[in-house]
């Protein structure tokens, strides 16, 4: 299998990359880690006329951790962010989600921002970003920059709000309030494969231990991550609420009924684990 021919651009800095992207418009595609795009090229499912390789843009190879959240540049590879203890301390869900993305060797090349723009309905990073209420920063030639909230960024299966000529330069994963816990549970046929279904959860408690927020984001069961507020729901009601909110498709890997059942089970487990983590945080900080 060989990729179809294309014109290759290897800009040296961000300004040059944006100028090239403006020139090629919808005939061009950005090449980041290539872990999703190159399979598509090899199988001739994507036939871009121009490929703009951003791997030389050292200025996008950034990871900045502040108390309010983690910002990853477009060249921050999965493995780098997964290893960062500072990032895991501010936003533990990042590492939990990253460990479920493919295999370590794929994560050495793949980028978080690439995962977000690729917008696979079964991918983990879009669910983490949506659950946390994060955003993606898009830039275009001429200096125009816009921050798109996750809720508006994922528009369909493999579709995002990125417009032709734009480059996603970074993504922001906000921290959660104190006394919060997170979890990510999924089931895949084989270790490292895309999940049949998966659920990320985030729970926040108040100082008395009452739940102020409990949310889940489900993957593999809709065209984009399905986020659901389950604050106040009893454990057995969580599964029911999730199954009522999703309309999974059937494919050769699993029937719609099985996916629906699975999402409910995973949601119950994820909420339970996130809740446990939030309780430990509460005990740790003292009441």
């Amino acid at each position: 299998m060989k990729p179809p021919p294309f014109d290759y651009h290897a800009p040296r800095d961000l300004a040059e990359a944006l100028a090239v992207l403006a020139g090629v418009g919808e005939r061009g595609k950005v090449l980041a880690g290539g872990q999703s795009l190159i399979p598509l090229l090899n199988m001739r499912l994507a036939v871009p006329e121009h490929l703009v390789d951003i791997n030389r843009l050292a200025e996008l190879d950034t990871l900045s951790v502040a108390s309010d959240g983690v910002t990853v540049g477009a060249l921050a590879r999965h493995s780098r962010v997964e290893r960062s203890t500072q990032a895991a301390a501010v936003q533990p869900l990042l590492r939990k989600a990253l460990r479920l993305v493919a295999h370590p060797v794929i994560r050495n090349r793949g980028t978080i921002v690439g995962s977000l723009v690729h917008a696979d309905p079964a991918a983990e990073m879009p669910a983490a970003l949506t659950l946390l209420g994060g955003s993606v920063r898009l830039a275009r030639d001429g200096g125009e920059v816009r921050d798109v909230p996750a809720a508006d960024f994922f528009t369909g299966p493999l579709e995002s709000a990125l417009r032709p000529g734009e480059l996603a330069v970074s993504a922001f994963f906000p921290a959660l309030p104190p006394r919060s816990g997170t979890a990510f549970h999924e089931l895949a046929r084989r270790h490292g494969d895309f999940a049949l279904a998966g659920v990320a959860a985030a729970v926040t408690l108040d100082e008395s231990g009452a739940t102020t927020s409990a949310k889940v984001a489900c993957i593999g069961v809709g065209s984009t991550p399905v986020v659901l507020d389950v604050t106040g729901a009893e454990p057995d009601e969580v599964a029911h609420a999730v199954r009522g909110a999703i309309e999974p498709d059937a494919d050769i890997h699993a029937s719609a009924r099985y996916r629906s059942h699975l999402a409910g089970v995973l949601a119950t487990r994820a909420i339970d684990e996130a809740n446990g983590e939030a309780r430990r945080a509460l005990d740790h900080t003292g009441r």
């Binding site: 872990q35 399979p39 090899n42 791997n55 370590p104 060797v105 090349r109």
Partner: peptide, 26 residues
């Protein structure tokens, strides 16, 4: 040639990567 089998794995600057999912020009 789509990243699944791993037999094309080489070290790029010391890190294992799929050579079938990397362009030579990159």
């Amino acid at each position: 040639e789509h990243g699944v089998c791993g037999c094309c794995t080489v070290l790029l600057d010391g890190e294992p990567v799929r050579s079938c999912l990397t362009l030579a020009v990159t």
